[in-house]
Write a protein that binds this DNA or RNA. Structure first.
Length: 128
DNA sequence: CGACTGACGGCCT
DNA sequence: AAGGCCGCCAGTC
């Protein structure tokens, strides 16, 4: 398998894992990385979301991948470059029942103790 | 084609 | 307790 194919496989793994996050729950980039077997690449997980297609014809896109349920390990919605993006993500989460709070720095936070989702392995990987 | 960037995280001061 | 540094590596300039 060529390197570019591995990169594609990584993107696919990330999107597939995110699709398993339950409605109304959130998890972190780092945890997704761990679940797909690459615990040292949370940054690449962020890249995947950044490039998530808007095109609903794509296998994975904004419609079928709950990208809004992924935040950083601190429980904060990553500000990224444009504040509006994080703001939009917060709105998407609140729309599905997740409580988002704003701290003194204006960072949008979610309480992991209430909405966190951190299984040891992906439900789809569990064999019985 | 080389250098810089960054939806992150953990370890080290 | 708070902040800095480094690893990771696909994208973008």
């Amino acid at each position: 398998m060529a390197r570019s194919d591995e990169a594609t496989a990584f993107f696919t793994a990330v999107y597939a894992a995110i699709q398993e996050i339950p409605h109304g729950k959130v998890t972190s980039y780092g945890h997704i990385a761990k679940l797909i077997g690459t615990p040292e690449r949370p940054r690449q997980v962020g890249i995947c979301l950044k490039h998530l297609p808007q095109d609903t014809d794509a296998r994975f896109n904004h419609e079928n991948v709950p990208w809004q349920r992924v935040i950083n390990a601190k429980g904060i919605i990553s500000p990224r470059s444009q504040p509006s993006g994080a703001r939009n993500q917060a709105a998407a989460l609140e729309a599905e029942g997740v409580t988002v709070t704003t701290d003194a720095l204006g960072e949008l936070m979610v309480d992991f103790s209430e909405f966190g989702w951190f299984p040891d392995v992906l439900p789809s990987e569990v064999e019985e």
